[in-house]
Every structure is written in structure tokens, then in C-alpha cells.
Design a protein around this nucleic acid. Structure first.
Length: 937
RNA sequence: GGGCGCAUAACUCAGUGGUAGAGUGCAACCUUCACACGGUUGAAGUCGUAGGUUCAAGUCCUACUGCGCCCACCA
């Protein structure tokens, strides 16, 4: 094998761009539904990004976590399906295209429905695939051949099937009730699409209604004076003595020709609030609507669909809501009916999409009955058929489903799945999979113009993407009805209700089985100061800018378009203090560094603060992997892979044990959705164990005239084994750099074409676990560490050779240290005299000493510093060490003498404490001896 | 009104009842032959506050404070 041409620093872009195509060409991502394929299946339905969307940090996080899981399962021999797709995103997309039209001075109504839909499709074709391309940059490995768009013909079949079945079962019905109406989007919304903005400053406005035929009045309080135009009653509490004399009387509406009754209602009215009298507007308030039903009140709608006042508003007709409010107040004032204003905090219901204030409106819509399905979805989690991780979300999930209202699924939009219902001339309605032959336009039939909520099709995603309602091989293989299937749904907790809960309900309903075995919820990426990323704040970061590098001035042009550059820059730097310290731009961190960084956060953190500084550190890590591998390849030149024999040398046994340990932690971490644990252990293992210790120690083996030359063959075999294993260990987190290096590294002939096919280290490494080697290596490492400390404290130049000696009373430790003394010598850079390990014996004067407590007793570390070590300094140093030891001894003593510790603590814990005490006392005795010797300097 | 989360080194964060950890930053030294995107050593902690349980609490319980989020139709 020829030495690969590896340039010195790692250049991510150059490397990363090469491998994606290679993976696709080699079918790495492909899921198989061939009948002969016996592998167990593993499935993740990818949350389909919006067709309007472009890549943001959330996608990068999805990709990092899901790809890590998928690659891990794939490497372990699973038949993996990561199901990709795109969501048509009804309101969002329609809004975008309408805005385009607006710029051309057109409206969708001028265009007409058919032309408009064509236009949206055209736009989808142009830009809809962009995000998939961007996901490739992230190294995502879904089976692209199976990509689905929620408006694909197959998906439409599934949507119609689901709708019709629900209707047949009586679970899909049409009803006229109060719904959330967005006057800007001009459509009904589900409860979830309404965001309640808390703490808005409003006012509580009080005005009087005159009692009909009497010179009396009743004062009501309202936050929305304009709705009084739709008032059809005033309610008081039945037991409120202030109003008993008014029960059954009528009031005169000051602006419209209407007498409104005074009613008593104990549910609606809290006598302690306001004036104790409530105006009732059944057509525009959810409480009032219920009250109206209790008292058979008239429901008077006062709004047009665009939010302006209709003919029922009398003199105010035509005004929009805000104007109407002012006008009503003014008119009441003129009539002398206002009775005061108090400031009042209120929550404003806003449309998730447009931000407009949502209006409760009386409307006829399609509703999906949720009660029974919700119960099943709760039960499925309770019985563990689906596990929610982290578990703390179960409460939230249950609370949502226990209180769920029927789902308003119809939207007055043009972009989406048109509802498969046909309206006849006499108000007949036919629901069917296809237009029934008799329901022709000529006969006066027309299809319901409304479309379904985007989330309706999303709720079918796990099985509709597999071909449902047909019982396809893919459906049989990849839906959890297959017992040889494992599956996870990974997503941000923000769509737990929108998507996850609904998939649970529909999966259970239509497939009679949960749609996935586990729900993995992760937190949201926020800026470095903990604020949500948003365009307004100018703190949005495009993952591609981190991957390929970008000038801050370019970034803020995108995040705050149109804003003055200085202002935008200052906002950006405030949001990312560690970026500000980088100067004016992000360097190209590369995909692996970005993914690794995202992987190091526990997914369960609700907020994940993106600190660019961490990216820098992890880019350095990748560079370290690159350079370490280059170095190892030099050592392995001419090596051809051979079966690994059980090695003899301590450091070889040790590093194999450490790899086994790291593999164990990584496997447990990824499986338990603690990918951060896998990432951190990979980092620690590679940098600390492999680079800092193992590679340094092996330098002494490969050095000329090494006394360990006999271990060279063994060490090469171990190095090759560990290097190849370490790359596989890290592949799910850093796919590109590991593939690039793995392709150049010696490996068994049995391996496949790509590292992506694994195997993932685990069981086969376990047999090299060697706790004795780890224990011994600890002794060696701390002895060497003590020697380094002495050198550093006395400021011995690196190149200056000084004798090193270890002394111990334990023969086994002495021989252990004897064996590593040469390497210790290299690691502490004392070049002329060989370091030695001794049992007892006299000590040369002019040595600095440190004592290391080990399992077999203290080890004295002696560094000959004749002419350098100063008596006072040495004594002071020893005193410091003694002090530290005394503190530790006191801690253990306190514990051991503590009431009940010896009797009640576990035996191992007590024993460990006693051992520690013995060792520390022995070390202390040695140190005191050293102090006497130092005193003689 | 109900629910959830967070608070540990200067910063970003791990921590699973048993001697407080990492990365970054900081200080000193080192161009040393894979890597200065590096190496060695070091300093740095009232684990938010107050109680409680326990032989033992950063970890479990209670209350409180601060920050953040979600749900809810109170005029």
C-alpha cells in the first residue's frame, strides 16, 4: 500500500464534496423491501421540511441526530429506511406565492383557482427540491429514491381514503360552530395554529346599557367594545343582590334596533370581576357561544371574512375591526354611555402564519372527532407500545390528548388536498374517494372548494409514504406491524402536538398499530445568549454559512435584509459573543464539525445554545483526527492487515481495552438517544487515550534502537486495529472525515466498500477489555504526570535531559515501571540517562520528589535536578503536596468515622475508602521521608 | 390559572446518592520530528437561596428566588 497523499491541514470542503456521490453510487442509503432480505428493519420517518423552506439550524440538528441513528443501525447490519420527503405546507406556501403575485400586481382571485394552483406547482418544481440538495451537504443518508411529496398522487389517494373512512365511521363530520378565523389568510384555523400572545397591554372598557322603559342602566366591562354590536344578552350572576331587581328585564341596544334580555348565568359570570355584568356576544366569543346555547340566544355575526364589519353592524358597516372599535367607543361617548376605562393585561390570539389577530367566527367546517383516537394514543404510550424519550414529555402529551377538542380540518385555501366531498343542489353532501358519476356539474353538483389542513396529510406520513392504503411490501416491511422492525420518530418538541400526537392517533386508527416504537424529542437550537432564532432579532444562522464559511456582513444581509449593516452586525454579534471574537467571518468549519458540535449537546436540553466557539474546538478535533491518522499511516507503511492476536505489551492491551470501553459507551449513548455521550466519549478517547498516550508511547516502540523493538509487529497490528476501529466508532457522527481516512487505512479484506456498512465497534472489541491493563496504565500515567509536574515546576527546558527514577516497595509495580521507564523517559524528555525503577535503596542528593498513591502502595518519582533544585522551593513544594494529602486524608477519615458509614454503606464503598486511606497514609509517610532528605540538600 | 424545564469554573455545558468534571478561555513554559487547528504544567467552584431526608446530597424531598417555554374561552 502506497503512502496516501495527505495534505497537512484538513480541508473539509475538498474532502466532503467527494464522498456523498460515492455513497449514493454505492447504494449506501438504500432500504430494501426484497422478500429475500432477512435483515431486521430500522425506520425513521424524516420530518418533511416545508416546500417553501430553506435549510436552518433545526434541519441541521434533525440531520445530525437522525443520521447518527440511521448510520449506527446501518453499520450494525440493519435494513435501514430513513424516509425523506417534502411537505406542501398549505398556508405557508400559498402565502408565499400570493406575495409573488402581489408584486406583479395580481391577486389569486384574478388568476382563478386552476391557474393559481398551476402557478404554485410551477414554483414548487423550481424551488421545492432545493432543501433536499442542502440536506445532502449535511451528509444526510436517507433513501432518496423513496422521496415523497405530500401532494404526490399516491399521497392524495391516502388522504382521500383516510377522509372517506373517517366519514364512514362517523368520525369526520360537518358542523356549524365557532372556529378560529384568520382575516388575513381568510381561512379557518385549528386550535393549534393559534398562538396566544401573553401580556399584551389592553384596556377594560366600561359602558352602560339602558334598561328598556326605565331610567335605570347596567354597566358592563369589555376588552373588545366593537363586539357589542353583536351582543344578544347581558348576563348577571343569579345570586348577585345588585341585580336581582333586573332579572328578566330587557335592555335597549344604543346603535341597532334590538332589545336584549338580561339573563342569569352562574357559569359565565363571576360576580367579583368587573361590574358583575357581562355582555354576551355568542357569535364572537367561545364562552359567550356556550352561554348562548344554554339560553337559546340569537347568534349575530358582525364581521365579513376579511375582518370588516358587515350589515349587522348598522352604522359601522364597512369599517375594519380596529376602526370599528374606536368608532364604537366614540359613539358610546357621544351618547354619554361610557363609564370608565381601566388598563388590563390580556392574551391576544394570533395566527401562527400571518400574525394577525384571530377572530372567533361562526362557520360551517369539517371536523374530525378526536376523543376515542386520543384515548388510544394515550394508552399506547401508557402501555409502552410507544416510548417517549425523554419521559418528561409524557405528561405534556397526555395533557394535550386528554383535553383535545375536535379538529377543524377544512381550510379555505386553494393549495392543498381538496376535500373529497360533493355538494348537491338541495344541500346534499356526498363523501367519496372519487367524484360519484351522478354528481356532475350539469346536475348541479360541485366539489367542496376547501382543502385539508396540511397536518392532515402529515399525520398519515409513516404509512402513506409506504404505499398505504395498498398493502405493499414496503408497508409490510417497514411499518411497526412487522415484529422484526425497530423505529424511531425524532423531532423537535415544538411539533409534539401538531405532528407526533396526530400520527399516533391516525397510525393506531388506520393501521391498528403505533406508527413508531419510540418518540425522540429534542430541544430547539437558540442563539448563544439563549434567544430563539428569528428574522426580527437578526440572529438566524444558515448552517451552510458555518459549513462553507461566510463573512458576517454577508450573513446579516440575509438575516436582516434592508437593515443598516452596522445595526445588523451589532445585533448579530450580540447574539453570538464568541463569534464576535473570531473577527469578521466564520471560517469553513465543515459539515463534520457542525454535526459533531450539534451532537455534543444532550438532545433533551430544551434550549440548545449554539456557540460558534464550540465549532472551532471541534474543527480542531477533526484536524487532530486527520493528523493522527496521517502519522499512524506512516508507522503502518508496508503493513498488511492480519488477524489480531492477544497482545502482551501493557500499552497495547490498554488501548484495546480503552477502545472497547469507548465503544460500549458510544453504543449505549446512541441507543439511549444520548448521542452527546457517544460524541464526548469519542472525543475523549481519540484525543486523550489514543493521541496523548498511545501514539506518544508507540513512538518509543517505533524509534530507532528502541529496546521495545520486539514489540513492533504487535504494536503495528494493534495500532492498525485501533485506528480502523476508532474511525468506525466515529463515523455516525462525522461521516465525511472518517470515510476519507478509512479508505486509506489498513483494514480486513472482509470489509465492504464503504465505512458506512460498518460494522460498528462493539461486541468484537469487548474481548479486549482488560481492567488490569487499565489499572496498571493508571499507575504509569500518574507516575509520568508527577515527573512532568516536577519538570514544569522547576522550569526545566524541554531538551534538557535529567535522570528519572521511580521507587516503590511493590515488586510488581517496580517491574511495571521498569518496563515503561524508557517511554516515560521519552514522555518527560530526559534523553541521556535511562530512567529506572527501583525497590528502596539510597537516593542521590539534588533530586526533586513527588509521591503517587497507587493500588499497591506509594511510588516515589525522583527527578535528578542537581544544581537546579533549590532547597526552599523543594521544601515548599513538598509542603504543598503534604497539605493536599492531609486534606484528602481528613475527608476520608471524616467519612470512615461518620456515624453508621461502616455499618450501612455498601461493602465496596467502605473498602474503597479504607484502601484510599491506607494508600494516602503510606504516600504521606514517603513524602515526610522525602522532606527529611530534601532538608539535607 | 395549570403544567414543564433550567440555575455547577470567566463562557458553553456534562454529572447515574459515595474524593466536583469536560471543551473553550486564562497563566507559565515549549517551534518537539503527525498536528501551534499542537504539547506539557497550572490557576480557577459558597454546585441559585433556605430547610429537610440520609452514615453520606451537586444528585432525593419541600419552600423560595431568577430565567425560559407550553397549555387554558374568564368578560
Amino acid at each position: 500500500m502506497s503512502t496516501p497523499d495527505l495534505s497537512k491541514p484538513y480541508e473539509p470542503r475538498e474532502v466532503e464534496e467527494r464522498w456523498y456521490e460515492f455513497w449514493e453510487r454505492n447504494g449506501v442509503f438504500a432500504a430494501s423491501d426484497e422478500p429475500g432480505d432477512e435483515r431486521p428493519a430500522y425506520v425513521i420517518p424524516m420530518p418533511p421540511p416545508n416546500v417553501t423552506g430553506s435549510l436552518h439550524m433545526g434541519h441541521a440538528q434533525r440531520c445530525t441526530l437522525e443520521d447518527a441513528l440511521i448510520r449506527w443501525y446501518r453499520m450494525r447490519g440493519y435494513n435501514t429506511l430513513w424516509q425523506p420527503g417534502i411537505d406542501h405546507a398549505g398556508i405557508a406556501t400559498q402565502t408565499v406565492v400570493e406575495r409573488q403575485l402581489q408584486r406583479e400586481g395580481k391577486t389569486r382571485h384574478e388568476l382563478g383557482r386552476e391557474a393559481f394552483e398551476k402557478r404554485v406547482w410551477q414554483w414548487k418544481e423550481e424551488s421545492g427540491g432545493r432543501i433536499s440538495l442542502q440536506q445532502r451537504v449535511l451528509g444526510a443518508s436517507p433513501d432518496w429514491r423513496r422521496t415523497k411529496f405530500t401532494m404526490d398522487p399516491g399521497m392524495s389517494v391516502a388522504v382521500r381514503e383516510a377522509f372517506v373512512r373517517l366519514h364512514e365511521e362517523g368520525l369526520m363530520y360537518r358542523a356549524t360552530r365557532l372556529i378560529n378565523w384568520c382575516p388575513t389568510c381568510r381561512t379557518a384555523l385549528s386550535d393549534l395554529e393559534v398562538e396566544n400572545e401573553e401580556g399584551a397591554n389592553g384596556e377594560l372598557f366600561e359602558f352602560a346599557y339602558q334598561v328598556d322603559g326605565e331610567d335605570r342602566e347596567i354597566v358592563v366591562a369589555t376588552t373588545r367594545p366593537e363586539t357589542m354590536l353583536g351582543d344578544t344578552a347581558v348576563a348577571v350572576h343569579p345570586e348577585d343582590p345588585r341585580y336581582t331587581s333586573l332579572h328578566g328585564k330587557f335592555l335597549v341596544h344604543p346603535f341597532v334596533d334590538r332589545r336584549i334580555p338580561i339573563i342569569t348565568d352562574a357559569i359565565l359570570v363571576d360576580p367579583k370581576f368587573g361590574t358583575g355584568a357581562v355582555k354576551v356576544t355568542p357569535a364572537h366569543d367561545f364562552n359567550d357561544f356556550a352561554t348562548g346555547k344554554r339560553h337559546q340566544l340569537e347568534e349575530i355575526n358582525i364581521f365579513q371574512l376579511d375582518g370588516t364589519m358587515n350589515e349587522n353592524a348598522g352604522p359601522f358597516q364597512g369599517l375594519d375591526r380596529k376602526r370599528a372599535r374606536t368608532a364604537v367607543k366614540k359613539a358610546l361617548e357621544e351618547k354619554g354611555l361610557t363609564r370608565g376605562v381601566k388598563p388590563h393585561q390580556l392574551t391576544l390570539p394570533r395566527c401562527q402564519r400571518s400574525g394577525d389577530i384571530v377572530e372567533p367566527m361562526l362557520s360551517t367546517q369539517w371536523f374530525c372527532k378526536m376523543g376515542e383516537m386520543a384515548k388510544e394514543a394515550i394508552a399506547a404510550v401508557e402501555t409502552g407500545r410507544t416510548q417517549i424519550i425523554p419521559e418528561e414529555w409524557v405528561k405534556t402529551y397526555n395533557h394535550f390528548l386528554e383535553n383535545i377538542q375536535d379538529w377543524c380540518v377544512s381550510r379555505q385555501l386553494w393549495w392543498g388536498h381538496q376535500i373529497p366531498a360533493w355538494h348537491g343542489p338541495n344541500g346534499d353532501i356526498r363523501v367519496a374517494r372519487e367524484r360519484p358519476p351522478e354528481c356532475t356539474p350539469e346536475n348541479g353538483w360541485s366539489q367542496d372548494p376547501d382543502v385539508l389542513d396540511t397536518w392532515f396529510s402529515s399525520a398519515l406520513w409513516p404509512f402513506a409514504t409506504l404505499g398505504w392504503p395498498e398493502n405493499t411490501p414496503a408497508l409490510q416491511r417497514f411499518y411497526p406491524t412487522n415484529p422484526k422492525q425497530e423505529s424511531d420518530l425524532e423531532t423537535g418538541y415544538d411539533i409534539l402536538f401538531f405532528w407526533v400526537a396526530r400520527m399516533m392517533m391516525f397510525g393506531l386508527h388506520f393501521m391498528k398499530e403505533v406508527p413508531f416504537r419510540r418518540v425522540l424529542l429534542s430541544g430547539l437550537i437558540v442563539d448563544e445568549t439563549g434567544d430563539k432564532m428569528s428574522k426580527v432579532k437578526g440572529n438566524v444562522i444558515d448552517p451552510l454559512d458555518l459549513i462553507h464559511g461566510a463573512e458576517f456582513t454577508e450573513i446579516v444581509k440575509k438575516t436582516l435584509p434592508g437593515a443598516p449593516e452596522a445595526e445588523a452586525l451589532s445585533k448579530f454579534k450580540k447574539a453570538y459573543p464568541s463569534a464576535a471574537a473570531m473577527g469578521g467571518h466564520f471560517p469553513a468549519f465543515g459539515t463534520d464539525a457542525l454535526r459533531f458540535t450539534l451532537a455534543t449537546f444532550p438532545p433533551s436540553n430544551k434550549r440548545i445554545a449554539l456557540a460558534p466557539k464550540r465549532l472551532e474546538g471541534n474543527r480542531h478535533f477533526i484536524n487532530k483526527i486527520w493528523n493522527a491518522t496521517r502519522f499512524a499511516l506512516d508507522q503502518l507503511e508496508g503493513y498488511s492487515w492480519q488477524e489480531l492476536q492477544q497482545p502482551r505489551a501493557l500499552y497495547n492491551r490498554w488501548i484495546l481495552s480503552r477502545l472497547a470501553n469507548a465503544s460500549r459507551i458510544a453504543n449505549a449513548g446512541i441507543h439511549g438517544f444520548r448521542i452527546d455521550e457517544a460524541a464526548n466519549e469519542s472525543y475523549r478517547f481519540f484525543w486523550s487515550d489514543l493521541c496523548d498516550w498511545y501514539l506518544e508511547l508507540t513512538k518509543t516502540v517505533f524509534a530507532e534502537h528502541s529496546p521495545f523493538a520486539a514489540d513492533r509487529d504487535e504494536t503495528r497490528a494493534v495500532l492498525a486495529y485501533v485506528l480502523e476501529g476508532a474511525l468506525r466508532l466515529m463515523h455516525p457522527l462525522m461521516p465525511f472525515v472518517t470515510e476519507e481516512l478509512w479508505q486509506r487505512v489498513p483494514r480486513p479484506a472482509t470489509r465492504s466498500a464503504s465505512i458506512a456498512f460498518g460494522p460498528y465497534p462493539g461486541a468484537s472489541e469487548e474481548k479486549y477489555r482488560d481492567l488490569l491493563a487499565e489499572r496498571d496504565m493508571d499507575v504509569v500515567a500518574s507516575a509520568i504526570g508527577a515527573a512532568r509536574t516536577i519538570r514544569a515546576e522547576h522550569e526545566i527546558k524541554w531538551a534538557h535531559a535529567v535522570p528519572l527514577e521511580f521507587r516503590t516497595d511493590a515488586p510488581e509495580i517496580a517491574s511495571l515501571l521498569e518496563r515503561v521507564a524508557f517511554s516515560a523517559q521519552v514522555l518527560t524528555k530526559s534523553t541521556t540517562l535511562p530512567a529506572v525503577a527501583r525497590l528502596g535503596g539510597p537516593r542521590a542528593s539534588g533530586t526533586a520528589v513527588s509521591v503517587v498513591a497507587t493500588y499497591a502502595g506509594p511510588v516515589e518519582v525522583l527527578v535528578g535536578l542537581q544544581g537546579i533544585v533549590k532547597k526552599d522551593e523543594e521544601l515548599a513544594r513538598i509542603e504543598r503536596e503534604l497539605k493536599r494529602l492531609d486534606k484528602d486524608i481528613a475527608t476520608v477519615d471524616k467519612k470512615l468515622s461518620g456515624k453508621g458509614f461502616v455499618d450501612r454503606a455498601p461493602k465496596e464503598v467502605v473498602e474503597q475508602a479504607r484502601d484510599q486511606r491506607t494508600q494516602m497514609l503510606a504516600a504521606r509517610a514517603r513524602l515526610e521521608e522525602s522532606r527529611r532528605l530534601a532538608d539535607e540538600l
